[in-house]
């Protein structure tokens, strides 16, 4: 277990460096959003997804975190990543449709991934396949009405093969979630609908994999939510819990400091 802890910490450090590298190369924003959910992606897509499972990044603005993770898995090449944000790329700021096996659906407009994932879970039930569906959403994204349409559909259809992962960093597009629409990702709301809800430390991979294993071990006809408590910009001191790092690109000095921060914390 100690070895695994060291390995996952290193993994999350490596993924963070790759994410920073991509954003630096593209001189692009959405860095905080990717750093917020990278550990959740590591736990689900990299460490727990089996061949028959599906992973959907519903918060498509964290595409760089997905690209870095698919690169780690060998599903994207160095050349793919080198084209990020460039004309003629298959890796735009938000995932593109029908380009890479590891990206089953293009996302970027919030509130789409959960209905799609719900449909995949329903199809698996109809055909008797045992694939699970992971849908990674942001907490701001749960403002979208489709969240609650899909949630009720999943309950009614007993989709216990659906595992929603919520990146709950408390910040959204233009303010703290508490100040915008209130806490639409509140675990109590999911429990009230009837979901099997587990909370986890969204930056502790073992906490996340344990949560995934725990809910997967309950084939009780009830869909699952792992509410992962996170910090936007996690790993880079000056980005943590700062709204502006939803949008800003890094200067060369900021990039150097970000790399230093991650290196000192994760390696």
């Amino acid at each position: 277990m100690v070895t695994e802890a060291i390995d996952t910490k290193t993994l999350c450090g490596q993924l963070r460096l790759k994410v920073l590298d991509l954003y630096n190369q593209a001189h692009a924003g959405h860095i905080g959003c990717s750093l917020s959910c990278i550990d959740i992606i590591a736990a689900s897509l990299i460490l727990r997804k089996r061949e028959q499972d599906t992973f959907i990044l519903s918060k498509g603005h964290a595409a760089a975190a997905l690209y870095a993770s698919l690169h780690h898995l060998g599903e994207l090449t160095d050349a793919d990543l080198a084209s990020y944000y460039l004309n003629g790329t298959t890796l735009p700021a938000h995932p593109a449709p029908n380009k890479h096996k590891g990206i089953p659906f293009a996302t970027g407009s919030l509130g789409h991934g959960l209905p799609i994932g719900t449909g995949i879970a329903k199809a698996n039930k109809l055909t008797g396949e045992n694939g699970r569906v992971f849908v990674l959403m942001s907490d701001g994204e749960t403002n979208e009405g489709t969240t609650w349409e899909a949630a009720h559909f999943a309950m009614q259809n007993q989709l216990d093969n659906l595992i929603i992962l919520i990146d709950k960093n408390g910040l959204q597009g233009f303010g703290y979630t508490q100040d915008v629409l209130g806490d639409t990702a509140d675990p109590a709301k999911w429990k009230a609908i009837g979901f099997d809800v587990v909370e986890a430390d969204g930056h502790d991979v073992q906490s996340l994999t344990s949560a995934i294993d725990e809910v997967s071990g309950r084939p009780n006809g009830v869909p699952k939510v792992v509410v992962a408590h996170t910090i936007k910009g996690k790993g880079v001191s000056y980005m943590e819990d700062r709204l502006e790092w939803h949008y800003l690109p890094m200067t060369p000095d900021q990039y150097a400091q970000a790399v230093d921060d991650v290196t000192s914390r994760y390696f």
């Binding site: 209905p115 799609i116 719900t118 109809l126 559909f153």
Partner: peptide, 15 residues
């Protein structure tokens, strides 16, 4: 909205 999203997910699985 959910109906069409669900349909897309099911179509992805071959329906």
């Amino acid at each position: 909205q959910n109906m069409v999203g669900v349909a897309a997910g099911m179509a992805y699985k071959g329906y």
